[in-house]
Design a protein around this nucleic acid. Structure first.
Length: 285
DNA sequence: TCCCAGGCGAAAG
DNA sequence: CTTTCGCATGGG
């Protein structure tokens, strides 16, 4: 229930958990309280590593995987340190790590993210979990695990609309239905989604784009935040703004061009650069 | 009241 | 290829 995960590399929990890549964490004193799939967790930095309390119990390997502790962050940041803006972002948000999220939860979360904002996305995901997920308790922390596609499919779009999902409710209900329908051919189960970790990025991307409601940006977020495709460079309004303002002197570019530029400019860890720039831009003032 | 938000899909140029 | 629009909803 309580473990110490030894770690002496760079890691800053506040930047990692509050940069907008995951939607189910909040700070409380020295701890961060969060829900990872069907697990309630408390984490904080401790001498020698990361202290983790959880329900149900998880092992150090689970924590290492979720926080991507095997990524050599210093080496990655060195590789993407190719311009003054990214260097500034790195100085400001030292210790920000990408997470390795559950692909199904990540997919639903980012479909829910379209034309929304981080506080609202968090609220929506919290409501969906409260409506369908299993109740979890950890000390005085109560939360709800993220539900599987069966529950969302059973409830349908109407129930999801009650979670402030608006027009996104139909997309999510449709995806949940496809993922639980044995008749559907070529479409994925949650395990099939996870298996895309072993598939080349371009090919995995095409599979994700088959879902109605998943466009290029959402597909790229799922690839980056849950499927280990660290070269992926998702382009949302903020990143679009970064590129046009900081790198192209206010010139207008298509999202496709920005995406190709980012991938080319930052190389195989472009996804790390994207998240640093995203967080940096959102707090520029 | 208007504008915007980690977009997408469809239609049209 | 690109641009434009409607789509729900809450917040500034």
């Amino acid at each position: 229930m309580a473990i110490l995960v030894p770690f002496d590399g760079p890691l800053e929990l506040s930047h990692t958990l509050e940069c907008g890549q995951a939607f189910r964490w909040r700070p409380q004193g020295p701890w961060f309280l969060g829900t990872v799939g069907a697990t309630a967790m408390k984490v904080r930095m401790a001498p020698g590593g990361l202290e983790v309390r959880s329900n149900p119990a998880v092992g150090a390997d689970f924590v290492r995987s979720y926080f991507r502790l095997d990524d050599d962050l210093d080496a990655i940041l060195k590789k993407i340190s190719v311009d003054r803006h990214i260097r500034r972002a790195q100085e400001k948000y030292r210790g920000l790590r990408l997470l390795r999220q559950d692909p199904w939860e990540c997919l639903v979360s980012y479909v829910a993210s379209s034309a929304s904002n981080i506080p609202k996305i968090s609220r929506c995901i919290g409501k969906v979990s409260r409506m369908y997920g299993a109740r979890l308790r950890l000390d005085d922390f109560e939360t709800f695990g993220f539900p599987g596609p069966e529950a969302l499919a059973a409830g349908g779009a109407a129930a999801l609309r009650a979670c402030e999902l608006g027009f996104r409710a139909g997309y999510i209900a449709g995806i949940a239905r496809e993922m639980t329908d044995p008749e559907s051919q070529g479409l994925l189960t949650p395990d099939g989604l996870r298996a895309l970790r072993q598939v080349p990025a371009e090919q995995a991307r095409l599979k994700l784009l088959e879902f109605v409601g998943v466009g290029e940006k959402v597909a790229d977020c799922v690839l980056l935040f849950s499927l280990d495709k660290l070269e992926t460079f998702p382009v949302d309004r903020w990143v679009q703004r970064v590129a046009e303002r900081l790198f192209f002197r206010g010139r207008k570019l298509s999202p496709k061009r920005v995406r190709e530029w980012g991938r080319e400019h930052y190389g195989r860890y472009a996804g790390y650069a994207q998240q640093y720039l995203f967080h940096y831009m959102r707090h520029l003032g």
